[in-house]
Amino acid sequence: MNTALELASEAGERVTHPAPADSPLAMQELTVSYGEKPAVFSIDATVPAESMTAIIGPNGAGKSTLLKAALGIVPRLSGRVLVFGAPLAQVMHRIAYVPQRASVDWDFPTRVIDVVLMGLYRELGLLHLVRRHHRERAIACLERVGMADFADRQIGQLSGGQQQRVFLARALAQNAELYLLDEPFAGVDAATEKAIIDVLKSLKAEKRTVVCVHHDLATVTDYFDHVLLINVRKIAEGPVATTFTADNLQKTYGGRLATAHIDQLKLPAA
């Protein structure tokens, strides 16, 4: 990595920066704070349409918070979020969300199929009955993640990987254009990881946009085409090929990522 490449990436970034109106998800000077210290500080980012974007950064960098602020789940202190060029409230139906698996109590008394049907909430509303076609759609979503045989199981009986697939199936049921996933590969088995990435790639093939908070630096180049590197502030954003560089990683992780570690990573060919 040399200065020339870095300049190229910065220049490239400026050129490929689409106007927010075309972007499925654009954040402008987004700041979120839980206490006195901001968790996310003045982040500008634009997710390109039909991309697969990874949000990368160390623990406590505000990755999940950024996603939640984009969804309006946590209040933002300042800044703006535009989804498909519109304020969030008008376009909620175009977003699907997969929270962190560990954020819910899997001992909750409900079945797999009921969790997937939650993805149809906007359609079902308060009082509409679940009809056969709703159920069939939920089963189809479970089929896509290889979990149709588990429809009537209590969710507490699932393994971690199976739980993650059920969450993905629920997001598929939302039938959205923008998919926001919080660490979908955290603590899952290899078969589940493969199943999930296949589904995400098929979503991209269907011209939908996928944004993942992602932890595993080793798989970034294989899975994603766009990255957003943050550590409370934005460090860099752009195509994986030009932005996912040793230099940027060093800036994002600071001393926490040893140079030796970076050398082992599969970085885009320089």
């Binding site: 939640k68 969804l71 309006g72 789940i73 409230a89 909620m92 977003i95 969300y97 929270p99 954020s103 819910v104 109590d105 909750f108 409900t110 969790v115 939650m118 909430y121 906007r122 079902l124 509303g125 308060l126 009082l127 629920r170 939302q174």
Partner: peptide, 19 residues
């Protein structure tokens, strides 16, 4: 309020994300 109650009791984050 059965449906939103159940949904937000199970998964508050997702409940918020569907409005």
């Amino acid at each position: 309020f059965w449906r939103p109650l159940k949904l937000s009791t199970f998964d508050e984050g997702f409940a918020g994300a569907v409005g």
